[in-house]
Design a protein around this nucleic acid. Sequence first.
DNA 1: CTAGATTTGTGAAATCTTTCACAATGCCCC
DNA 2: GGGGCATTGTGAAAGATTTCACAAATCTAG
Lengths: 206, 206
Amino acid sequence: MRKIAESTVRRLSLYLRFLEDFEEQGMETVSSEELASRGGTTSAQVRKDLSFFGSFGKRGLGYSVAELVRRLREILGLGRTYRVAMIGAGKIGSALVQYRGFKQRGFEIVAIFDSDTSKVGRNWNGLTVRDAKELESELRRQSVDIAVIVTPADAAQAVADKVVALGVKAILNFAPIQLMVPDDVVVKTVNLALELETLSYALTNR
Amino acid sequence: MRKIAESTVRRLSLYLRFLEDFEEQGMETVSSEELASRGGTTSAQVRKDLSFFGSFGKRGLGYSVAELVRRLREILGLGRTYRVAMIGAGKIGSALVQYRGFKQRGFEIVAIFDSDTSKVGRNWNGLTVRDAKELESELRRQSVDIAVIVTPADAAQAVADKVVALGVKAILNFAPIQLMVPDDVVVKTVNLALELETLSYALTNR
DNA sequence: CTAGATTTGTGAAATCTTTCACAATGCCCC
DNA sequence: GGGGCATTGTGAAAGATTTCACAAATCTAG
């Protein structure tokens, strides 16, 4: 498949969100213009984004909401569930575990680890926090698709190395460092400091 | 000032992080190549990024770590402190309040609000959670630079409208919706669902 | 069945971002 | 002080993304 820009994928994900709203409101069809205005982009952009994957609309009429939802879910790979391991049972981990959007979209947290023995054994949303030492044996026992790294910065790279060695191909990283991983592993980093500093930049240079 | 790409600003913020590390390690100078390899980019990219703001290096030698740190902090607007109001005292808000990077970089949380009366009055890291009804009077009493929105999706737009009306020019949004704000207000949205779905896309289309 | 109104899909143009490549500069050492 | 080495700063080229603009398709009404 032709290489698709990350910006395109992010917009598709947004469109899907809007379409789900539209579907709930009982709309049957939607135009690229309606999707665009909801997402702060242009109708041409919407059509171009979709055109990379096929032609889903009807000229003169627009897109069937139900069909486009189905197609986007397929394109984004949301037709299955993903098994997620969370490494780090601190505040952010705790917030994430409770985040309903996870399960709703098919991301199922199957294990939580922490190296702090005072946290090990606690029950979190139906899951027992396990000792980080068991990470390896546990990931051998049950495969996971995605590792969420919510450790302090100085532990994150070691954790990443370990999960990569155990075959994990996708990492969602909340530690404020740049992880080094092989090319065939995808990493998304959510870096709060970066977001704050782009705000700061924008406030300063107006 | 010439319009600078957001991608450039984000990289500058990354470089600053690396430089702080280098400084701590006692390095006096650094080359664009060293910065680049640490950040997963190229030396030409580093030099181009910096060149938008001036020429800070010495040919043949590289950059003075201390000076570049100083310049980047200035460029990013980190020479001052920012007053931050947090709206929403749920799990994510609680994680953010404890996040040390906030204060470390000059972002001081000066008020926390929630509409859940069972949370109002609690002490969070030295701050009392206030009733969301007081948002307006409180923001009139003390100005804030940045509003962090950590409410459920269905409340977020109303909160945004209110803080914008009260003069806030920058919003960090954790609610999973697209906020509508006037052009002169900057919004950064951290949308977990989006990150998960780009991972899902990447895992599917390999 | 035709005219008119919409709205898609998509090449081509415009714009934006990254990479290339090399002259210019400064340091070091003899 | 001059030769050699390292590294910056930056136009120009290449590449990527967005916007434009219009033919093609479909619907509606008469």
